[in-house]
Simulated scan of single mutants.
Amino acid sequence: MTLDTFSPNIAAIIDGINWHNLKENEAHRLRSFGFEEGASIYVRHRGILFWRDPIVVQIGRMTIALRAKTARHIMLRPAENQDIGHG
């Protein structure tokens, strides 16, 4: 499942990122925020507009807003421990 379709209020693990489909500056930005395979992520909020932008996620101690067109390149799986991201 990709981040742009993942439901809010669910903890997840990043399974992979299609780096080659992202612009270089966007890929660099995601890497600097800690987006990498195996990282824990928590989907906080999705926009209510047609495009569902922005998608707000917590990764580590940071809260980040992403566009759906970027989030569609990030593959997730539900985390076994749903407590990540709370607190």
Rank of each mutant, 00 (worst) to 15 (best):
M1V: 15
L3Q: 07
L3F: 09
D4C: 10
D4P: 00
D4M: 05
T5F: 01
F6S: 10
F6T: 13
F6I: 12
S7T: 07
P8I: 13
N9R: 15
N9P: 00
N9H: 13
I10F: 07
I10T: 15
A11L: 09
A12T: 02
I13R: 15
I13N: 12
I13F: 02
I14Y: 01
I14A: 02
G16L: 03
G16F: 03
G16K: 11
N18L: 04
N18M: 01
N18Q: 08
W19M: 08
N21Y: 08
N21T: 05
N21G: 04
K23D: 14
K23L: 06
K23G: 12
E24I: 09
E26L: 05
E26W: 04
H28K: 13
H28Q: 13
R29I: 02
R29C: 02
R31M: 12
R31H: 11
R31S: 12
F33C: 08
F33G: 02
F33W: 10
F33N: 07
F33S: 09
G34T: 14
F35T: 02
F35L: 04
E36Y: 09
E36S: 11
E37G: 04
G38F: 11
A39V: 08
S40V: 00
I41G: 01
I41D: 02
R44L: 05
H45P: 00
R46G: 05
R46F: 04
G47N: 06
I48H: 11
I48M: 13
I48P: 14
I48S: 14
L49S: 13
L49W: 07
L49A: 10
F50R: 15
F50G: 12
F50N: 13
W51S: 14
P54M: 01
P54K: 04
P54R: 05
V56L: 14
V56H: 08
V56P: 00
V56G: 01
V57I: 14
V57H: 06
Q58D: 03
Q58E: 08
R61K: 11
R61L: 03
R61M: 01
M62I: 00
M62P: 00
M62E: 12
T63F: 00
T63D: 06
I64W: 07
I64D: 01
I64K: 12
I64V: 12
A65E: 09
R67N: 11
A68C: 10
K69W: 06
K69V: 03
A71M: 02
A71I: 01
A71V: 02
R72G: 00
R72M: 11
I74H: 05
I74E: 05
I74A: 03
I74L: 04
L76P: 02
L76D: 03
L76I: 00
R77S: 15
P78V: 11
P78D: 11
P78H: 12
A79L: 09
E80S: 15
E80I: 00
N81M: 03
N81H: 11
Q82Y: 02
Q82M: 06
D83L: 12
I84W: 07
G85W: 01
H86P: 00
H86V: 08
G87W: 11
G87N: 14
